[in-house]
Design a protein around this nucleic acid. Sequence first.
RNA 1: GGGGGCGUAGUACAGUUGGUUAGUACGCCGGCCUGUCACGCCGGAGGUCGCGAGUUCGAGUCUCGUCGCUCCCGCCA
Length: 593
Amino acid sequence: MDALGKVRRTHDNNSLTAADAGREVVLTGWAQRRRDHGGVIFVDLRDREGITQIVFNPERDPAVHEKAKAIRGEYVLGVRGIVSLRPEGMENPNLETGAVEVLVSELWIFNTATTPPFMIEDQLEVSESLRLQYRWLDLRRPRMVRNMTVRHKASRFVREFLNEHGFLEMETPFLTKSTPEGARDYLVPSRVNPGLFYALPQSPQLFKQLLMMAGYERYYQVVRCFRDEDLRADRQPEFTQIDMEMSFVGEEDIMDLSERMIAGLFDAVLGVTVPLPFQRITYETAMDLYGSDKPDLRFGLPLCDVTDIVAKSGFKVFAEAALRGGIVKALNAKGASELSRKDLDDLTRFVSVYGAKGLAWIKVKEKDWQSPIAKFFSDDEKAALSQKIGMEQGDLVFFVADTKKVVNEALGHLRLQMAERMKLIEDECFAFAWVTEFPLMEYDETEKRNVALHHPFTAPMDEDLALLESEPARVRSRAYDMVLNGTEIGGGSIRIHQRPMQEKIFSALSIEPSEAEEKFGFLLSALASGAPPHGGLAFGFDRLIAILCGEKSIRDVIAFPKTQKAACLMTQAPSPVSALQLTELSLRVSRPE
RNA sequence: GGGGGCGUAGUACAGUUGGUUAGUACGCCGGCCUGUCACGCCGGAGGUCGCGAGUUCGAGUCUCGUCGCUCCCGCCA
């Protein structure tokens, strides 16, 4: 084993070209692969940047060649040698450095390596749990290096953009106060205050508002947030937000700045030109047309409300849904009438997940409809349906009848499913949109009260203020979500900046004045002491990077992510702690049997 | 909390109706090979079939439980 000593590389492994031929260079890196021909030995030397082929020739230097026989996969090497053009016909077009190779005159083996449990290459077939267990090896794979590099470039671009637009990057506490609304908090026990707890922030929401009240005008932070809820492919217990807030602005200012930032980011990272401004769509329209508040606009397939047409029909399922205040909507899968009975059964099971009790369908054939429900409709009803839905020969039309919520959930997801099946989604297509005019609150059946849809500090729309007491569910908010390809990548709002309004909203959310004072007293006090009009936005950085990288899971753009059970397979966190630690924290653990 | 999928050499998989010695590929080790780049050829080692019970003359295979990974529902302002 050789010491590093004064050995320093002159180039990384992605930079040598034909122009460097004849130069003496020093390279360092990992042995990706060794090809021993008995005589000459080739080694692919890999680092973060790429691969360079190094050559050991016994005729050139027998001692070095002998030493090179010991090289195995992932050994850490340094070499000194002469850059040389490869013999004609021996160039490797797959490598950036494929025109040249380095003829080694000196070899240092800085470290050996155990045989890795999986190969360090992109086209690997290995379970994710093994990758997570040996994450330091997984992170050596070029694709992961690429993902981490994109992440770095993105955060760097965002910082520079916001810096140039007068924003201050400011930090906010991680040890903070548990608040009643929203997600479950991660709690941290306080040793010096026995029995009391901090909460890790779900977002720096209140702090950034307080910074506006403190007069900082423009704030941002690339910040970790924590939510103790169950995980998904796009949800981790700790995740990163680009958090920003501005004073003396309205919705348009924030949306305009944000979309220019995102367009700049896509240009800087992917070289993709994103047309501005983004499409705007109201919550109501999004739900009507796409059954979702984060519609995927890369394709059409809009939903169609047919409640009026079928309300009086002989098909009881539809008529009764309408009678009970529900709705009936249709999804026209253009040209999909060739789906088999089994496909339709599968899709029925697919929508049942979202609470749909059934999935009616009509195949539009040459002369008539092929459908189990066609017989229930009069000729007039058929004509009206056909016209409203735009039914043409070869179409397959789905229907769901239920409450508004179930119908939209079921058909909204069916729409995505069908688009995938019908291959309607182009690669490299980025459909951005703003969704606006969200409801301010909605009734929560389990809590038996109104809860904020966004958060309780979101301002209501002025024109809906009159409804606040009479019909609170109809009050729209000054919130906006940025949606990309069916993923919510950011969201924000204009905030309440006057104490009486904030108290009114707390009251509408059934938060008692005493509780409001206890939990948010500092906010109420600050609102009364010269709070400027303000608003902001937070981007889900991990989701954004996953889309930029073309990854399905945000785990692939986080260096050390957690599993679905919120565990780190590498460190084995979470883990038990000593009795002493618990005693110091005044904690006793009771575990259910 | 609930539903689906997966779990067999280091890795990815195959394994028939429950049947006697659990295979294949890659990787690994050894030998040969002076222009490969997924080098090639020859040989070899390597298995708690996730774990635990049960059924059976006999379980990788069937049953139950359990653990882990994953996708989804609930949840995630």
